[in-house]
């Protein structure tokens, strides 16, 4: 099963000549092989599949992705509509974000 939950890299070590690491998934800690992630550093979040780290989470991309959605959300709300152009009602959740961010 593809485990989509990224884990936080706690520690890096070497075992039988392979780069290994301890990865924390919100309290559950497992060991993963990091041979495919030579760049992964302690404190970063990694995607692990069947015991192997495959990717380091790109935190800049997370911020960029969420910022794009937030921008769409807010610019539409400023025009009194939601992001699909429907008129906002005063008590909907769509009004909350601009107020919070403002």
């Amino acid at each position: 099963m593809c485990l989509a939950i990224p884990g936080k890299l706690l520690e890096v070590s070497s075992e039988n000549g392979l780069r290994m690491g301890r990865v924390d998934y919100g309290g559950t800690v497992t060991t993963a092989c990091l041979e495919y992630l030579p760049e992964a550093e302690v404190g970063q979040y990694v995607v692990v599949h069947a015991g192997f780290g495959l990717s380091v989470i790109n935190e800049a991309e997370v911020e960029r992705t969420l910022a794009i959605w937030k921008e769409l959300y807010e610019s539409a709300a400023q025009q009194g509509v939601d992001i699909h152009g429907r008129k906002l009602e005063s008590d909907t959740t769509t009004n909350e974000t601009p107020e919070e961010s403002g």
């Binding site: 990224p6 936080k8 998934y25 909350e96 974000t97």
Partner: peptide, 15 residues
């Protein structure tokens, strides 16, 4: 959980 909760945001999903 970091990098999970942000992508389960119900308001964003609704949008």
């Amino acid at each position: 959980m970091k990098f999970v909760d942000e992508f389960r945001d119900p308001d964003l999903a609704k949008q």
